[in-house]
C-alpha cells in the first residue's frame, strides 16, 4: 500500500472521530472569537474616548499579564473555578485573546485622522452618530484586520483546549504524538490550518459586506 492509500484508509476508518474533533475545535474557536470581539471591540472604542492615560495603561497591562501566564498554569488556575472541559477552555483562550484584539482594535480606532473627526464634529454629528457613521466605518478595515489576525491565532491556540479535556484538534494532535501516529498529527494540524484560512477568507468577505452597507 502506498502512503497515500494508507492515508485514505485512515480517513475512511476514522472520519467520524476526525469530524467530531473538528466540530469541537470550530465551536470552541468561534465561541472564543465571538466573545472576545464582543468584549474587546467596545472596550477598545471606549478606551479611545478615555482621557485618563493611567487607566488605559492599567487595562493594557492586565491584558498583557494574561498573555504572559504559561498556558498550563492558566489552565490549572481555571480548573478549581470552572472545572474542566468547554467552559474553562473558552475562558482561558478568551483571556489569551484579549491583548491582540484589544491592541489591534485600539490602534485601528486611533488611526482615524483627527481631521476627519473634527470635520464630523464641526458639521454637527453627535457623539454617537460620529462613532457609528464616521469613526467605526473609517476604522473598520484596521479593526477587521486585527480581528482576522487574532482569529487565526485563536484557531491555533484552540489546540490547547485538548489539555483541559475540551477536545478539539489538539486532542488529535496530542494523541498522534503519544500514540506514534503521524497521520493523526498531520490531519489535526492540516485541518486547523484549513479552518484558519477559511475563517480569514470569510471574515474578509464579512468586512466587504459591512463596508458597503
Amino acid at each position: 500500500m502506498t502512503l497515500f492509500q494508507e492515508y485514505i484508509t485512515y480517513w475512511s476508518e476514522d472520519y467520524t472521530s476526525i469530524l467530531s474533533y473538528m466540530y469541537e475545535h470550530i465551536i470552541i474557536a468561534l465561541t472564543v472569537i465571538t466573545l472576545s470581539v464582543l468584549f474587546t471591540v467596545p472596550l477598545a472604542i471606549f478606551m479611545t474616548k478615555m482621557k485618563n492615560e493611567l487607566v488605559k495603561t492599567i487595562i493594557f497591562n492586565i491584558a498583557n499579564v494574561f498573555q504572559t501566564i504559561p498556558t498550563i498554569a492558566l489552565l490549572a488556575i481555571v480548573i478549581p473555578l470552572l472545572g474542566i472541559g468547554f467552559v474553562p477552555a473558552v475562558v482561558a483562550l478568551f483571556l489569551y485573546s484579549l491583548l491582540p484584539l484589544l491592541r489591534n482594535t485600539y490602534a485601528g480606532m486611533n488611526s482615524v485622522d483627527s481631521e476627519i473627526i473634527e470635520a464630523a464634529k464641526g458639521m454637527g454629528y453627535g457623539t454617537v452618530q460620529r462613532l457609528f457613521k464616521i469613526e467605526l466605518p473609517v476604522a473598520l478595515p484596521y479593526v477587521m484586520s486585527g480581528i482576522r489576525v487574532s482569529s487565526v491565532y485563536i484557531i491555533s491556540w484552540t489546540t490547547l483546549a485538548a489539555l483541559i479535556g475540551a477536545g478539539g484538534l489538539g486532542d488529535l494532535i496530542l494523541a498522534g504524538i503519544g500514540y506514534n501516529d503521524t497521520f493523526m498529527i498531520f490531519t489535526g494540524t492540516f485541518i486547523a490550518i484549513i479552518i484558519a484560512i477559511l475563517l480569514d477568507v470569510i471574515l474578509g468577505k464579512v468586512e466587504k459586506v459591512i463596508a458597503y452597507s
Partner: peptide, 18 residues
C-alpha cells in the same frame, strides 16, 4: 444644532474617506 446650520470647511479638507 448650531453646527448643522453653519457650513464648515476645515484646514486640509477632511472629506470622509469611506
Amino acid at each position: 444644532e448650531l453646527r448643522r446650520h453653519m457650513g464648515f470647511v476645515i484646514q486640509n479638507i477632511g472629506l470622509f474617506p469611506h
